[in-house]
Simulated scan of single mutants.
Amino acid sequence: MHEIKNIILADNQDITKAGLLYLLKKNYKDLSYSFASNKSELISQLNVNEDSLIILDYTLFNFNRIEELLILRERFKNSAWLLFSIELSNGFLYYIAQNHLPISIVLKENSKEEILTAIHYTLKGVRFLCNYASNQLLEHRIQASAPSPQLTRTETDILKEIALGKTTKEIAASRNLSFHTVNTHRKNIFRKLEVNTIHEATKYAIRAGLIDLAEYYI
């Protein structure tokens, strides 16, 4: 990994930037610092200095999908990335972990010590996940390793469509089935999964990897 010479604070909150800048200058006096308030400014900064650590509040920045972030990470290969947000969804965390993406994660609510540790490891090219992110991923692995309900192939396909927001009528039309048949499958799926709502069924579909996690990053 190239030596990081600059840190870009990519955040829309002035108080956060001021506090983080104070903390950084106190611990990393030899680095230069710059700011970005949107994606365009961030790209401009990286064009000037690619060897940068980007400390990014992903949830407040104008990224529409996680793929946009990954494109920037691939385009500026000498950069390092630390996501520094108030909250990130479990789906987003699973996507980062499952794809082994070289992106560190720490939350704004974490302690000063944990934030500094995240910065330290990311500067060295080592991915860091805060305790919250690590615990969520561990819980996900435990749940994924538990015995799963035996859904039929048709039930699995219909569950995927339910999780993607399709109605019973839409599923019936796309599969050339009657409304009654799809509704029966739906009842059987809910019974086997021991769930009562679409939200609960969707959470199972995410854990089982039936749907693209990138669609549920916020």
Rank of each mutant, 00 (worst) to 15 (best):
E41R: 08
R141G: 05
L69Q: 03
G125H: 03
S40W: 09
N135F: 04
N176I: 09
P149W: 08
G19D: 02
N64I: 04
L9Y: 00
I119A: 06
K26I: 04
R127Q: 10
N131W: 07
K5M: 07
I171R: 07
T168A: 14
E170R: 05
E68A: 03
K112I: 15
K77V: 14
Y28C: 01
L137A: 10
Y121D: 07
Q150I: 09
S104R: 11
E114H: 00
L69H: 03
E74C: 08
K124D: 15
I103Q: 00
L107M: 06
R127T: 14
S104Y: 09
I15Y: 10
K39R: 11
A133C: 03
I7K: 05
R65V: 15
L70I: 13
K203N: 10
Y132E: 11
H100Y: 09
V126S: 13
Q98T: 13
T117G: 05
I211A: 04
G165N: 07
R153W: 09
L20R: 00
K39D: 01
K77Y: 10
Q136L: 05
T154F: 03
S145K: 13
I211L: 01
I8T: 04
E200H: 02
I162N: 00
F84G: 01
Y28G: 05
N27T: 12
N6S: 02
A173I: 12
V195D: 02
L101R: 00
I198K: 14
K29A: 10
S37P: 00
A118I: 01
V182C: 07
I55Q: 06
H199V: 15
H199E: 14
L151K: 04
Y22K: 13
N64C: 08
A205G: 07
E113D: 12
D11V: 06
F128C: 04
L83P: 03
T197L: 15
H120S: 11
K25E: 06
S111D: 11
T197E: 01
I198V: 11
N78T: 08
F128Q: 06
H2W: 09
T167G: 03
K17Q: 11
Q45E: 13
I105K: 00
I206W: 00
Y216P: 05
L159C: 02
Y22Q: 10
A208V: 05
I54D: 02
Y28W: 14
E68L: 02
Y121I: 02
E139L: 15
L210W: 09
